[in-house]
Design a protein around this nucleic acid. Structure first.
Lengths: 254, 254
DNA sequence: CAGTGGTCTAGACCACCAC
DNA sequence: TGGTGGTCTAGACCACTGC
């Protein structure tokens, strides 16, 4: 098989491989041919074949293990149902992990979450939303979420210390109903959620945890919980691999 | 200035340029140095410098004009307020363009929209949501949206012909309140909206219109309008450059 | 140890732009 | 016509993997 000169060779080759993967010729977990093999087979240099594989890596369709090979991604796309997940009914099935649990189990995978709690100076954007003075600490609940032990979401949340200091919110396990229920108990009931979604390159921390290679972007969900007097009392700067998730939103129309 | 060997040179160089751009050293619209200049200055090959520029291109931070140079992107990030834009109050300021108009003008830019109406066989995903038989046509309202004459959103919407055929929905101008108001007049009032957001690579059509180079992904918004008997009566498969937009959602908490 | 991924260089070629 | 973007090759080097 040979390549036409109209579109760049590496892009054509990426297209051929993409089609083969989507057709199931290389099932999830399987190794795709090495750059050397591809170059041989399609009459291009190894560098060009590598370039084609890099395209697929950036799309999240394959992952490469240095020295071992290039493999079709294992994880199916995860759907996240946004408004529903924070409803009281969803929260009461286990500390706000109910929604994530369901979404992952629905795909036949085993979910797990590791929460690490600390006090830190939040990143500038979170500090601004929380209206914290420069350099002021807050509570950080850093959740790391996995499906079948593969990292799928990095979800740090920031809560002001005047609300959370010394309370159960500083425990790893916040008990039934999760942080939202505890904040309500403390007199800081959230009545409104906003989420701002964007694609951006990953931070070093996100990249390390999510095992992102090359230049795979993430989708950032800037999650904010508001009280009835419009104070932001919980801010989440959550990141998922851009290629691996679909975010579902819905609302009634007047 | 020289480069450390720990991180790949092209990535370090991309980081230096990114910092310079964000610091305003190269303001929007300005040309960044050519690959040859960068190679000279930082002691790397031209190919490596080009690779660094490719990183920034994929991030949407710069755009290249073949034969002319590489320039810092002109457009600021556009915020899209999702639930509010479809409320009756927003719709009544001019055929559903009220929300987009406001968002662009808010950035000090001039919005414009070109609508093209036709009958076509919709893409498979839209056909499935609309519950159309294979090969069956529907109405397509293809909206192309610009800010300062630069394309920013490609927004085709699909409506079944048993609803839209021969009605004002087949006109380019749907009148006050837009398609939602006309569908209500026709007895197909939408009572609920869902939107599914994902990042993916652009189709050929999207790529051509949005002038996406290299492998810039888009954010797809799969917008669905539902009637009270849970029929999907309007499906939009809308695409925006992933690097140029923030999507804002919000909802009340019980 | 050989195979593989990943980076880098030098040099080449072509298309396109501006002058 | 010269500068620039973009692609491609051949060849090199190193880190890492699995045997």
């Amino acid at each position: 098989m040979s390549l036409q000169p109209q579109e760049p060779r590496f892009r054509q080759l990426a297209g051929i491989l993409r089609a083969a993967i989507e057709a199931g010729e290389y099932p999830p977990g399987a190794a795709v041919p090495t750059a050397a093999d591809l170059g041989q087979q399609y009459g291009v240099s190894e560098a060009t074949a590598n370039n084609a594989l890099a395209v697929l890596r950036r799309e999240g369709l394959v992952t490469s293990r240095h020295g071992a090979g290039t493999f079709v991604r294992l994880l199916p796309v995860i759907h996240r149902r946004a408004p529903g997940r924070f409803a009281r009914s969803a929260r009461e099935s286990g500390q706000n992990r109910g929604a994530f649990d369901g979404e992952i189990r629905h795909l036949g995978m085993v979910p797990s979450v590791i929460t690490h709690v600390s006090r830190e100076i939040p990143p500038a954007d979170a500090a601004e939303v929380l209206d914290l003075a420069e350099g002021q600490q807050c509570l950080v609940r850093r959740r790391k979420m996995y499906a079948n032990d593969q990292p799928v979401q990095f979800a740090p949340s920031y809560i002001p210390l005047d609300i959370a200091g010394g309370t159960q919110l500083e425990q790893e396990d916040t008990g039934p109903g999760g942080t939202i229920a505890r904040m309500r108990d403390l007199g800081h009931a959230q009545v409104r959620i906003t989420e701002s979604v964007r694609a951006r390159r990953a931070t070093a921390e996100e990249s390390a945890f999510l095992q992102l290679e090359s230049d795979q972007p993430v989708i950032e969900i800037l999650h904010i919980g508001w009280t009835k007097d419009d104070r932001a009392v919980e801010v989440g700067v959550w990141a998922v691999p851009a290629s691996g998730w679909v975010l579902d939103y819905g609302w009634p129309l007047d």
